[in-house]
Design a binder for these strands. Sequence first.
DNA 1: CGCGTTTACGTCGTTCGTAACGATA
DNA 2: TATCGTTACGAACGACGTAAACGCG
Lengths: 328, 328
Amino acid sequence: MTLTQLRYLVAIADSGLNITAAAERVHATQPGLSRQLKQLEDQLGFLLFARRGRSLESITAGGERVLTHARRMLSEADNIRAYAANARGDHRGRLVLVTTHTQARYVLPVAITGVTRDFPEVSVDLQPAADGEVLSHLASGHADLAVISTAGEIPQGGLAVPLFRWRRVLLVRSTHALAGLDRAPTLAELARHPLVSYESSNRPESSLHRTFTAAGFEPQLAMTARDADVIKTYVRAGLGVGVLAEMAVSAREDADLRVLPAPLQMPECVAWAVLPRERVLRDYALALLHTLAPQLDRHDLRRAIDGHIEPTWPTPPSWAELSQSITT
Amino acid sequence: MTLTQLRYLVAIADSGLNITAAAERVHATQPGLSRQLKQLEDQLGFLLFARRGRSLESITAGGERVLTHARRMLSEADNIRAYAANARGDHRGRLVLVTTHTQARYVLPVAITGVTRDFPEVSVDLQPAADGEVLSHLASGHADLAVISTAGEIPQGGLAVPLFRWRRVLLVRSTHALAGLDRAPTLAELARHPLVSYESSNRPESSLHRTFTAAGFEPQLAMTARDADVIKTYVRAGLGVGVLAEMAVSAREDADLRVLPAPLQMPECVAWAVLPRERVLRDYALALLHTLAPQLDRHDLRRAIDGHIEPTWPTPPSWAELSQSITT
DNA sequence: CGCGTTTACGTCGTTCGTAACGATA
DNA sequence: TATCGTTACGAACGACGTAAACGCG
């Protein structure tokens, strides 16, 4: 049993049982993989894949089992390599982020720009995902860091680091009935108008939905989208009142629209960075994290990550405070 | 980075930084290990060991870090091999048990005999340990299964499987003042006599100590030992009242001594098997466990171990019931 | 001078890629 | 017939053990 054999095994499993495609993925030839797979099966004494004719039909139960152990071994091997790269100051590599559209579009740009400036040999891979899918992407092990928001709870599935607090704002056309208001509308006032908001607001357990129903109202969601820019477009088209994160509105770009604070009952949200457990973080990933959470000490962060401990974090700054300190 | 290199690295660390001894351990030559270590260090880009002259002086911080990841990788490799051996019905191997003297001497023999009968190619390695050290031996990863008793709490550090309930008994010479009693003495009566018991009774948090002090008495421990046979010897010598586990007294062997039940306030204990987490159990280890816990379904056990879930176990049988069912 | 590590050298085993072959839909 | 996996072959690489050299106590 060699690491190469296990790497090939995982590649085959991840390529839909297509050995040719797997060979491509690991930069080797197809006969090489075939041979190593056969040798591994011979040594273990049972088939890892069920064959139909000559091609692989499905993974056997034993193969599934071996696969999970193999994945752990390979991820530990990656950990050693990552640690070594940090130790020798080698900052080449990839940084895979998985996050929602709003974070990707409005929060991360400055932070990522900083990383690519300080670590020019890093290629950042920004994976967009729906609200509920971010953490499952992280759990699958293909991402180094997730950024996600919650209204209260601490995200599970990794080490959660609080970044900043933010509130929702309302966005309306200047001709809209609410445009003249110089205060936050009440929930009752807002409930009379069709809303345009994030896709996740459709779910009954979303904080928007819960806030309305707790007060005895039913939100009218005229339209939902993952993408804040799409929401703005439909607000401009007069479809309804935009309900989105304060990070997503810009005084310059959205000067044609009126911005109102959301009703006070709508809870404050917290944006979190979530790091996979048992995974060594590259220095540039830590740098990104530190840009997003400058209030936290770099070495405390490193200790929390390496020691797999969950510290009691201080209350994160508001988005206004954070964006202030990032740009200056 | 190869598995061989990591195996060598661990061997060197476990041999007190003596490469020659490590080579012996892994059945290879010393220059081979030296070379692989050097190559690993070259590839990682930093020293794993600090040198003084030519010999290894200490592990570096980086070396320590790499070592922990390497150990995990190797243990996962062992898991794959163990799973494969099970799958192909290969029942050769070692079974390392760590436990206290009483279990080793009075409880495990029948169970181990059963294993060596059903699995003649297994060599059982019974590691004796003091009460408090059993679980740390297990945690170090050198044992497959620990057997230990507690008075109430569930043992930590692995998947704990309850085996049986047992009580303490008193052992006295026939000439002893308590010998004529046909009931359990009260705590007050017992407190007047010097006691001979297990070493762990010295600790103030031991259940014996706690029981006495809770009733306002102070136990007089004339002598303590890890070994039940030693305790009996000193009881025969008239040193005091033996307080030991009911499993340790035999109607035949101890016919010259009087056996009394312990005071009712002394709590019932539970013997547990503790299995290391994240470790594939060989079939013969499961067989041993099943002999010790016949009330539990074999497949439930396998599922609990493989799935790393902690089921709510049924109340275990008493030692009398268990020893009955084992021998028949 | 003994112990332990490093270096040098020759051999052996293994892996790899290319190319030809076989099976399947 | 196109696609995908297996088998065959030769070259290159790497690992290993033996033997000798080197440092240190």
